[in-house]
Amino acid sequence: MGILEVKGVNKRFGGLQALGDVNLSVAEHTVHAIIGPNGAGKSTLLNVLVGKLIPDSGSVMFDGKSVLGRKPHEINQMGISRVFQTPEIFADLTVLENVMIPCFARRDGAFRMHAFESVAREGDILGQAETMLADVNMLDKAHAHAGSLSRGDKRRLEMAMCLVQEPKLLLLDEPTAGMARADTNNTIDLLKEIKDKRPITMCIIEHDMHVVFSLAERITVLAQGTPLIEDTPDNIKGHPKVREAYLGEAQV
């Protein structure tokens, strides 16, 4: 039994079958990559997992509980964090505040009316946030405006915001899209570090095969909304079905 179990999920947009009978099982404490050509349904699947889309049929179980029909913030509170394709951070706040907010969310839940407490006195939360920033080597930028960070730093910050919640499952939506090679390699190193440091399950949606083969322990290939094959990276490499799906466009 995996921590995330997707069974028979279908999603149709008008005449387009975006997801057709998708089954997926992500085992705990592994890095699972979902790859596939453009339009394969990767993003649709991700949006189903985080509660943004509700599938027409099928079930999605996380940690023994169904996520279907729950709102994004409820799903996050269950232990799923998400990293976006373009980093979603609080650009108007400082880096430290960006990391404190998920700390509050974890401690106080989806809403708490703490209007007369002082942020400056939240020693625990400050400590957690600073430790996390030190972990991603950003402590020196703690008081910088998050909006003024470089793209690579924004990505690191977003990761830090997700990780500080200690999620059971971290979903990454093309974390290196549009990045220069150097930044991509930095992100790979960061993710490897995260994986080594704490018990976490990651599910990565990615185009870049370099990233996938550097990180993943299991790979699911999605084509036209249906899982084609699921196996270890070594077996996926050079698999004729995968070559066919990509029409030889990728060097797999």
């Binding site: 985080v50 994004p72 996050n76 964090s81 979603e88 609080f90 650009a91 989806a110 915001m161």
Partner: peptide, 11 residues
């Protein structure tokens, strides 16, 4: 600043 991030942060 960012409602989307708020929601995906469990708030």
């Amino acid at each position: 600043s960012n409602q989307q991030r708020m929601n995906y942060t469990g708030l």
